[in-house]
Amino acid sequence: MNARPSCLSISGLTAILPNGSRVLRSVSLDVKPGEVHALVGESGAGKSMIGKALLGVLPPSVRQVEGSIALEGTELETLGAAARRRLIGARTALIPQDPLTALNPSRRIGPQMSDRLTHILGWPAERARNRIREMLAEVHIREPDRVIAAYPHELSGGMRQRVLIAAAFAAEPRLIVADEPTTALDVTVQKQILRLIADLQRQHGTAILFVTHDLGVVAKISQSVTVLYAGMVVERAPTPALFATPQHAYTRALMAATPRYTDPASSLQPVGSAVLAELALEVQNADNEWKRAHG
């Protein structure tokens, strides 16, 4: 156990749909300060839900019923709604999945980048403006003034994602939730954006909860991993250990199902039925246990 408090500590997080089925099954994980923690799983595994629960933006149909989320030692549950919102605004940020829909089409880029600084953190406008210029330089945007004055539709997808990344790092948050930040981009741009996030993360020492379905990305960017299946933690390990000695059959199956650019001739293995049966059994057991505990 590390002596420093975790940047993010989630334990027993459970969320349900209106029909009572669980989308998150008692999820626990720890993100240390300054580390990149990858959340990996198939689509529908609930990896985005964890980030949304932390940021307080769960969809209206999903309800968190159990568990605690602590941000740098502060239990979010103990805060009132407004205090929680301010804490999230000050200490965290989100790099969204789709840069095309994550910017307001009717507002200029500059104010969209700086409004957290000026309105939530109370920075003077001048300081916020300078900070935005700095950040745009850090994400290698050559004409910051043109971008600041532009509307989103005047920028390419890759540019918009750079803008969103710059905005996320601008307030020096302790934790950034990156929700599949490269999925919606062209393959050629994906690599650049990934490297950009990794560089900024190192320079700023920001912890990142990196949501992805791509084990290749996990290997490149993260220091620790949580593997999810059906809202349930399957395996949790430091990244090198996970790739060296995957403990769970599902993790091994996922690795076999990941394409390798170095060895394109090797055929991909779908996750086998024996593994799926084992997972189904584990989910079943977890649900039975939960039902026993909750009547």
């Binding site: 969809p59 999230i88 605004g89 989100l94 969204p96 910017l103 939530i120």
Partner: peptide, 27 residues
């Protein structure tokens, strides 16, 4: 209200009323 840029504004720390007036109303 459920579009990505509105969700992003909530994460920035804006209240629901602020989110409506700043992000949603004009569109």
């Amino acid at each position: 209200m459920d579009l990505d840029y509105v969700v992003l504004a909530r994460v920035k720390g804006f209240s629901e009323t602020q989110v409506i007036l700043r992000e949603a109303l004009k569109n």
